Amino acid sequence: MENAALLKAIIDNAIDGIITIDGRGLVESINPAACKLFLYTPGEVIGRNISMLMPQPYKSQHDEYIARYQHTREPHIIGIGREVTGLRKDGTTFPFRLGVSEVSYAERKIFTGFIHDLSREKEAEEQLRDYAAHLEELVESRTSSLKDTVIALQQAKEEVSSSLEKEKELGQLKSRFVSMASHEFRTPLSAVQLSASLIEKYAQPYDNENIRKHVAKIKGSVGILTGILNDFLSLEKLEAGKVEATCTPFDLVRFSEEITEELQLVAKQNQSIIYQHTGTASVVALDQNLLRHSVTNLIANAIKYSGENTFIEFCTEIGPSGCVITIRDNGIGIPEADQKHLFEAFFRAHNTGNIPGTGLGLNIVARYVGLMNGQVIFKSNVNQGTLFTMTFPTT
């Protein structure tokens, strides 16, 4: 008797609804939580068919569900049961997760249904979907506006350039223009990046794939625009004579392995960056910041202009004559007619299509390599790939 009283107390105080029915679908018991969910009293439910708590099409199919369960004999476990809809006394419906198990009692079998209300979870999911959609529209609008502004700035720069007669005056005007525009855009871009990171953090408990997808799209767009601004700022500093090489000894192999690991994370599907070092020496005396920017730019270009399921070869060698760094890809290559202009500022090959870029990256690489007394050359064929080689003398 004591055990029976304890069991009844547990059922009566359970948070989830519990209903038992016989093999014909007639309700034998219902706990207070289930009564609260369906807005019925026990007397209004017990003895009646369970279909009274089901909206269509569940009402007409409930016998089929019972027959299916009796045939498979596979109980539905709470937490992984199917989601269904319940019908309240006032005619409203609500979602819940249903777990069903078979219980042998007094030489007969009854079925116990465990009902977990999903109303709050569904409302939260709907709010998150609405918020994510609104956020995507907002960020796309602002990102589009920023892109349009960058394009307008570029067009304005070209119009101003064509009207100037002296190259020195053009350089000074461009330097001031780029510096001002780049700094003005950093604040809103930083705000968008921070907001995207916070949204990603706060949405983690909901494990929503749509939110992760949209946040990644936001971060990707911000990354592209940030890269554009960084290129403009780097060019401005170079032309203003503010960049100097500070060469100090460091481990080239460890340096290269770190870059390989970082860029492998942003490579395309099944794209592999293969790094190899030749020789026993591993220490060089170069400017790590300038070299990191140069190597990263060349490998990033190899990723961008190569397809999926390809290899990118990254090799370093230290010998008696100096240090040699090569990056080889199997991408779209560079048309022969464009190769003589490749290191010019704002120049892009004609086969790049809609692939984003500023046309500044290789110009900056060549100038950074030059500041370290090095040289960069390349070999390329259309649709066969490109090989960039940076050489630095031994100091």
Rank of each mutant, 00 (worst) to 15 (best):
Y305Q: 08
I318E: 03
N31D: 01
I19N: 09
G359Q: 03
C35A: 01
S163Y: 07
V243C: 07
V103N: 12
S175T: 14
L194M: 14
R108I: 02
F111W: 15
E257S: 05
F314I: 01
S162P: 00
E261A: 15
E167F: 04
A337D: 11
Q288L: 05
L298D: 05
G361T: 01
I259M: 13
E121M: 06
T112Y: 00
H71Q: 13
R24G: 15
R97D: 08
R48W: 02
L170W: 06
S272I: 14
K304Y: 02
P188Q: 00
I18W: 03
P335M: 06
L298S: 02
I115G: 03
P188Y: 03
D12E: 15
I312Q: 03
E165A: 11
V324M: 13
E313T: 14
F255L: 01
I259C: 13
V295T: 04
D117R: 09
G47N: 06
F250G: 02
L290M: 05
R24M: 11
E158N: 08
A267C: 15
A4K: 13
F96Q: 03
N351F: 01
K109P: 01
L362Q: 02
P249A: 00
S104H: 10
H341M: 04
A281V: 06
I151N: 08
S190T: 13
A14K: 04
A124G: 02
K147V: 13
L265G: 06
G279K: 00
G113L: 07
T326I: 07
L298E: 02
I46R: 03
K268N: 01
F114M: 07
V100K: 09
N49V: 01
D329V: 04
